[in-house]
């Protein structure tokens, strides 16, 4: 589904990603772990198409298409979803209505008829229930006055509604207490399926107790330095990143 080859990315002229190779197949959940500043969020933003991230070398092929040629909304229409580490508040734009506009833009791209208000509301209620997001919050302005936990649940609610093929979740666990983490993880797990791939980005192993990955990658200084199964995450938790760093240093 996704094939990243030799990806080099600069931000403001500063190299951040220095040759990423990564392949994710449908049905797989990959985790990317790494210390702060290793380039985890940069990878997430590049996949979603944020401006200001310059790809200087390499390629990203998604479903056989050149992802780097697509605008962010086209990527969304093609099934890419980014769950933000820090979801922005948008006063004055209501959650549910902007999502209806978003979903219908995506449906249009796929040649499907738009959902009417009634069908959309039904769908929204169903998806909000997955992450126990109160109805009232789905109707408020996007993330405006939401607590940290509510923002993250809102992200997963949106993901459930948009049903992406590839979900990139950037530090979905940050700022969550254990109860909120379990709710969010339950929401994510409910969306796992043979047609869907996930890239879960996290600093800590904790999240991976709840969202168990098929493959774990360790990202340090813009490169993937280790790849393994879920036990790699546990080992990291025990030894810390410095152990890996020392091991790879010549």
């Amino acid at each position: 589904m996704l094939k990243i080859e030799d990806l080099h990315v600069e931000v403001d002229g500063k190299p951040i990603l220095k040759g990423i190779n990564l392949e994710i197949n449908a049905g797989e959940v990959h985790a990317i772990m790494g210390p702060n500043g290793s380039g985890k969020s940069t990878l997430a933003y590049v996949l979603a198409g944020r401006e200001g991230y310059e790809v200087t070398r390499g390629s990203i092929i998604y479903k056989g298409l050149d992802l780097l040629e697509m605008a962010p909304e086209i990527r969304a229409a093609e099934g890419i979803f980014l769950g933000f580490q820090y979801p922005v508040a948008i006063p004055g734009v209501s959650n549910i209505y902007f999502l209806k506009a978003a979903l219908n833009a995506i449906r249009k791209h796929r040649g499907q008829d738009p959902l009417d208000a009634i069908d959309f509301m039904k769908l929204s209620k169903e998806k909000a229930a997955i992450v126990e997001l109160p109805d009232e919050l789905t109707k408020r302005a996007v993330n405006d006055g939401f607590s940290g936990g509510e923002k993250k649940r809102n992200e997963i609610y949106q993901m459930a509604l948009l049903e992406p093929a590839l979900a990139v979740l950037d530090e979905t666990d940050s700022g969550l207490d254990i109860d909120a983490l379990q709710v969010v993880a339950k929401g994510v797990n409910a969306l796992r399926g043979p047609e869907r791939a996930m890239l879960v980005i996290t600093h800590y192993q904790r999240l991976l107790d709840y969202i168990v990955p098929d493959v774990v990658h360790v990202l340090i200084d813009g490169r993937i330095v280790r790849t393994g199964d879920k036990n790699l995450a546990k080992q990291l938790e025990k030894d810390g990143y410095s152990e890996v760093r020392n091991a790879i240093s010549p």
């Binding site: 605008a71 909304e73 734009v93």
Partner: peptide, 25 residues
């Protein structure tokens, strides 16, 4: 706000639409 524009676009809202939504709000 670039962050707001990007957020809306990652959900599938076309750029000019996202502009209009934020302007009107």
């Amino acid at each position: 706000d670039d962050d707001q524009l990007f957020y809306l676009r990652t959900r599938g809202v076309p750029k000019d639409f996202a502009h209009s939504m934020l302007t009107f709000a």
